[in-house]
């Protein structure tokens, strides 16, 4: 007798023959249910020596940065267009140039930097000077080949800033120490230590929304408006090159 007829009685031998097929189907079903986790992990383990090296990873990272930069430029252009519509475009057309720091006095009576580029490179008094991380000061005077920067820490330095989180405006004033003071225009600034301070969007002296520092402490009892001590993001003591946002 070759094959079992379907109506034949159940036998243990039949179960032994069918069971491998059932288990196999069950295993594949498990793989399907787990979306091939085991296969993927095994493949990753086996193929690890052949994974792309760090150069390819850096290439991908550079591409991602480029994409972010393009997005940023587009947003910047959009922002300039909107500011122009709001008649806040006095600083809209601008370029950045790099300049070496040839002398620095960050303590003492004068808080200033001397830069190795000047009027011949298009730098004019009032231009904003940026270090790694944010604004550090403004051009105070210019010679054909050098420029003098008044740091934000210098007494007499005043720029309009705001606390980004609460959108409260204030004046950042240099007091000679390494931490300038922010004087709020409101009685209730609703600012706490750690809040980021950037240049005011309404400022016509410096580019808008450039990071400046972080609120270190707040004194709300000062009359007539609260004051905050701001820790600058870009440290002038350790900067060898700066970027100057020149006006076209």
């Amino acid at each position: 007798m070759g094959a079992y007829p379907w109506g034949a009685p159940f036998r243990f031998r039949t179960l032994r023959r069918v069971m491998p097929l059932v288990l196999l189907i069950g295993a594949f079903g498990f793989v399907r249910w787990t979306k091939g986790t085991a296969f993927a992990d095994i493949y990753a383990f086996v193929s690890r020596p052949f994974w792309p090296g760090s150069s390819q990873r850096e290439w991908v990272q550079i591409s991602a940065q480029l994409e972010q930069q393009i997005k940023l430029n587009l947003l910047e252009q959009d922002n300039q267009r909107l500011r122009r519509l709001l008649s806040l475009d006095k600083k809209s057309g601008s370029d950045r140039i790099s300049a070496p720091v040839i002398s620095r006095t960050t303590k003492g009576w004068w808080q200033k930097l001397e830069l190795g580029k000047g009027g011949m490179n298009g730098i004019t008094p009032g231009d904003a000077v940026m270090g790694p991380g944010g604004l550090i000061g403004r051009i105070n005077s210019v010679t054909p080949t050098t420029a003098r920067v008044m740091l934000l820490t210098a007494p007499g330095s005043q720029i309009g800033v705001w606390a980004e989180r609460t959108k409260r405006h204030g004046m950042l004033m240099g007091v000679g120490t390494s931490r300038p003071q922010m004087i709020f225009l409101d009685n209730d600034p609703n600012v706490r230590p750690g809040d980021v301070v950037s240049t005011s969007p309404a400022s016509t002296l410096v580019p808008p929304n450039v990071p400046v520092g972080v609120v270190e402490s707040l004194d709300e009892k000062v009359w007539p408006t609260p004051h905050a001590i701001v820790q600058l993001i870009a440290s002038p003591e350790a900067i060898d090159w700066v970027q100057i946002q020149i006006q076209r």
Binding site: P155, G156, M173, V175, G176, T177, Q181, I183, V222, H227
Partner: peptide
């Protein structure tokens, strides 16, 4: 000139 800043901070520096 005072720079409109509280004198104590400026004087200390």
């Amino acid at each position: 000139t005072s720079f409109e800043v509280p004198g104590a901070l400026l004087n200390a520096w």
